[in-house]
Nucleic acid binder design. Sequence first.
RNA 1: CGGAGUGUAGCGCAGUCCGGUUAGCGUACCUGCUUUGGGAGCAGGGGGUCGCGAGUUCGAAUCUCGCCACUCCGACCA
Length: 492
Amino acid sequence: MAELKDLTKRSEDYSRWYNELVVKADLAEQSAVRGCMVIKPYGYAIWEKMQQTLDKMFKATGVQNAYFPLLIPKSFLCREAEHVEGFAKECAVVTHYRLKNDPDGNGVIVDPEARLEEELIVRPTSETIIWGTYKNWIQSYRDLPILCNQWANVMRWEMRTRMFLRTAEFLWQEGHTAHATAEEAEDRTVQMINVYADFAEKYMAVPVIKGVKSANERFAGALNTYTIEAMMQDGKALQSGTSHFLGQNFAKAFDVTFVNKDNKPEYVWASSWGVSTRLMGALIMTHSDDNGLVLPPHLAPIQVVIVPVSKNAEQLAEVDKVVAPIVDNLRARDISVKYDNADNKRPGFKFADYELKGVPVRLVLGARDIANGTIEVMRRDTLEKTVVPLEGIEDYVQSLLEEIQSNIFQKALKLRESMTRTVETYDEFKVEIEKGGFILAHWDGTPETEDKIKEETKATIRCIPLDGDTTPGTCMVTGKPSKQRVIFARAY
RNA sequence: CGGAGUGUAGCGCAGUCCGGUUAGCGUACCUGCUUUGGGAGCAGGGGGUCGCGAGUUCGAAUCUCGCCACUCCGACCA
């Protein structure tokens, strides 16, 4: 694999490095269908862990899972004007419901007789179909709130795709809530962005900045969009999760009202929020190095791999005997272990392969160790090797896993901090943005200024940070007043 | 949709300019033996409509024309 330290300088090489890593680490591959991706078992195992963890976190806040149809009648998508405009260009459309044999003998063709009266859209997101459904579920304030989430696939016909970061079809979860009051809906919006931030930092070990999107970057049909923004190792920003306060826009578009305590009809208030397989991209790009993937222990499908070293079958049998109780003890502590005693691959191959796949801890045991009562431990994040006593190895491994988890988070945080600068003038900004990273600057709050900056520098406002410095100042471009500094960056 | 490039074994490529043995190399795969503390060595073996179609020619991976697909850079991307 090409070397990461050289590639961060040039983004086109960084994406080549990234693609190569995704394939070599056995996470995914391009499919025959344009812009689509096959997620392979190892990649899916990581996604599954993310999914399970998030699902638990959602349920702890009262959310329930449900499932809504893949296909959306075209008329549904048109109801909310801004929403249509935001998604229309990238929708896949179903126009027919039948094939027939080609009279010329070339397999099958679309039966022209079987045109649908109303075209169906493959969901790019499910707000419309869900609000079309919620209308039937909601009569009274007693029916509220509704807190539903669905795990699903969606499709957006993107012009250019990258594995995990932007694919035509992707897996995600989308939560859709309905509330009696604006406050309650907005609280839920904020609550969920906090869940996402917790998940990113505690499980993925990816530091994120919570913030609010500018009007330009806001979700089509939302009043307010909250986001978590991460920084990749090449200094580009990656929007990793969003939570939208939808106001009454969809309730009005789909005529969803409830009767309040005073027996008066009111439109329902809404939120929606989602994260996708894009998080896999964030995970890969945040921690990987020249030897391959580095997985956070909290999400690694294999947390510990044990590799035996032996000269013959008798020696291997000896090692098997010593390893067996270690495997049991680690599993008893909920640590996932793989003992790879396959004799068709040599140890050196296994070392390299498990490093490529990002397994956090590797144990190596051979005749030499058994004689000494020791075992070799290698941690993936620093690649350091230590020989420790066999006695108490389980405790050692357990605390090492936690140390790796916090170490890779700290490392990513340090990188982000070192690549975050504050600028005062637009000239200074133009110089700094070329170096990558996050730039904190004052902005007058207008879309016009944001557009001008984007056009001239390719940088966008990633977010207006929630926990940032709120000292007012003057816009670096127009000199007009600014409430606080916002984060600019080039983004994926 | 614009600019550039690529299509030859599962993957990565050479050969194409200048047409001419049975289309080659690396890797992966299969068999056997030896190996095993950082991606093993040797020997043998299988695998190809050279992207598709037409043309030129005694003869095309190679030349001509047309088409298709993919990759990268832009445009686009809540």
